[in-house]
């Protein structure tokens, strides 16, 4: 199992190291729960993950098949657009690159879709090369439903609304289509280091 350490650039100093805090963010104590709707409770036997859209053919994994994929441990700083950040969070997840292996597509963008109807859009290149995972464990435990379990997208280099909770698949698209928040004022890309919170940032 590979160990990927992200966010530990330079010295491993105190968690309050301000160089790890993007502009306008503060350090959260605990792990705030944000939700745009009721928490889905999809039983694992009914859960699946699908790659669809602009692909040669859809790929789908059951929970058991998904669990059999090679997973990685990840340590990452996460940044929510509501201004809290949490440093050194520990996850286990399947790299998105592994899910896209062998997929033939001309797509440049992805819409992640979730139980409950949530969607978010990202450039495909932001999901590959060790930058994104479908995470199913947090801090050594199965991911709690309130934090997106059984599985959520984890894209720590973008604001956390891009890390869709309860993710059930990725729809590959040729153009960049705004998701739930991106349709209503939030930034299409969402880089916390450039403080891309809203349209026009």
């Amino acid at each position: 199992m590979a160990f990927i350490s992200r966010g530990f650039k330079g010295r491993r100093s105190s968690a309050a190291d301000s160089s790890r805090l993007p502009p306008g963010q503060y350090l959260a104590t605990g792990f705030p729960v944000l939700s745009a709707g009721p928490t889905p409770h999809t039983p694992l036997e009914k859960w699946s993950f699908t790659i669809t859209g602009e692909v040669d053919q859809d790929r789908t994994w059951t929970w058991a098949e998904f669990q059999a994929l090679p997973a990685e441990d990840i340590t990452a700083d996460i940044h929510c657009v509501t201004k809290w950040s949490k440093l050194g969070t520990r996850w286990t997840g399947v790299p998105v690159s592994a899910l896209l292996e062998g997929v033939e597509s001309a797509a440049d963008y992805v819409t992640a879709f979730s139980d409950g109807g949530y969607t978010t859009n990202l450039p495909l290149e932001d999901l590959v090369d060790g930058k994104a995972w479908v995470a199913f464990r947090y801090d050594g435990q199965p991911l709690d439903p309130e934090h997106g379990g059984p599985a959520r997208l984890l894209v720590p280099h973008l604001y956390l609304w891009k890390s869709a909770k309860w993710v059930r698949g990725l729809r590959l698209t040729l153009d960049d289509r705004p998701g739930f928040w991106e349709s209503n004022g939030y930034n299409m890309y969402g880089d916390p280091w450039r403080e891309q919170r809203y349209w026009g940032d």
């Binding site: 944000l34 939700s35 745009a36 709707g37 009721p38 609304w161 004022g185």
Partner: peptide, 16 residues
């Protein structure tokens, strides 16, 4: 109404 989110989300109490 869900307010612990990037914005305020208002949902139908019958169908969500």
């Amino acid at each position: 109404v869900y307010v612990n989110a990037p914005g305020i989300v208002v949902r139908c109490s019958a169908c969500t």
